[in-house]
Amino acid sequence: MKTQKEILIEIIENICKNLIDAEQMLTELDSHIGDGDCGIGVRKGFEAVQKIIPELSKMEISDILKKTGFTLAYTIGGTSGAMLGTGFIELGKGLKEKLEPNIFDWVSAMNFSLEAIKRRGGNTKVGDKTMIDALEPAVLSMINSIDTNKEINIVTLFEKALSAAKAGSESTINLTAKKGRASYLGERSIGFKDPGSVIVCIILESAYNCLKNN
């Protein structure tokens, strides 16, 4: 049986692969409502993470996540780098000193990370047409899963969270952007999905697929 750390590294590798493959799709989405560099930035960021996998494998869970976040923020740059980076860094901070975190630790760290991204973005809310539109429903679904079930299956927990994220991401199509560069477009940002929310879905889907296979 694989250790938790081994599965986490596998998840990170899978996230890297899927987001690098999504370059064109993200660039296409961003060209409508941003400056069209989202896909390239994200690809560079996750290629940089791929390169440090051997280094990550020697670290504890909390530091693996922090180092991944710093690498993303450092390489992607801009607001998308800062927000994606913050997500991983704060997830790592939320798991500080937890060598073998349990499912409750993970969900509470996810919530900690969500709140940090919202703060860092200037009190971002659901409805602002950002990654939060996918991430917040996903985290709320996770919290709901651990609150209502005595026997928690992590695969089911992620499956539900992923479908909540996808619904949230779809809902951004009809929203007017209130944050970031897309907010300059005002109502013209309606009709396109927010790329940040799509990234959140890909990350959760990558994690879900790894967990399912383990």
């Binding site: 180092k67 710093f70 607001t79 800062a82 860094i89 860092r120």
Partner: peptide
């Protein structure tokens, strides 16, 4: 400004981490 603070705060965290 939100963006400036975010990037400077993260930079100081990264420098500390490394």
């Amino acid at each position: 400004y939100t963006g400036d603070r975010a990037n400077f705060e993260m930079a100081s965290e990264m420098i500390e981490f490394e």
